[in-house]
Write a protein that binds this DNA or RNA. Sequence first.
DNA 1: TATTTTGGTTTATAACATAAACTAGTTTAC
DNA 2: GTAAACTAGTTTATGTTATAAACCAAAATA
Lengths: 94, 94
Amino acid sequence: MFNDLDPLLHSQLRLAVMSLLISVESAEFTFLKEKTKSTAGNLSVQLDKLSEAGYIQIVKSFRGKKPLTTCSITKKGIKAFEDYVNNLKQYINK
Amino acid sequence: MFNDLDPLLHSQLRLAVMSLLISVESAEFTFLKEKTKSTAGNLSVQLDKLSEAGYIQIVKSFRGKKPLTTCSITKKGIKAFEDYVNNLKQYINK
DNA sequence: TATTTTGGTTTATAACATAAACTAGTTTAC
DNA sequence: GTAAACTAGTTTATGTTATAAACCAAAATA
């Protein structure tokens, strides 16, 4: 009846990040921060978790002299997101 | 872009309970426990939270000599659930 | 009458989300 | 050129949450 919801995705901020990443090739930290209206600290922590789960890839580089953090969703992440959405439907489609 | 998700509903067990209650007139504690496969303790706590938020009504009575806890969703609960579902769609409909 | 079961509640703990504080360097204003 | 403010984050601390474990009272069962 109710499949478990991946706890890694069942978090407002991480879900918003995945939602953004699924429709773009990659996104910068500041872009994600703006779109999700999160604090940098919170975003940093949640990106790490998604990265450690293998759901996203994080590449650190420099743009000019400033640090640049770029994120992209992985195949595993896409699969996890799709599964999450499918499972969620059991809960919200009365 | 991303509306906040009601934290009271953004919980697997509470969401499952609301999902069940929205399509029935009322449901017993044991029914909810079975359907959600939760432990009694966890369910008890989460029902209290939904009740305190005014999302459900809890009526305690006896069936024969045994205690009976019956739950039903309130208008406020229906509204909250519908809002939650609508907001959630922003996250999952890329 | 001892044990198990029912129908829960209360309490303790571990995980989580978040904000606040901090770091390291860059740009701007004086 | 140096102080102040800004950028782009990370780390740490704290409060909240979810969950399991322990508990309770009564009833049913062996």
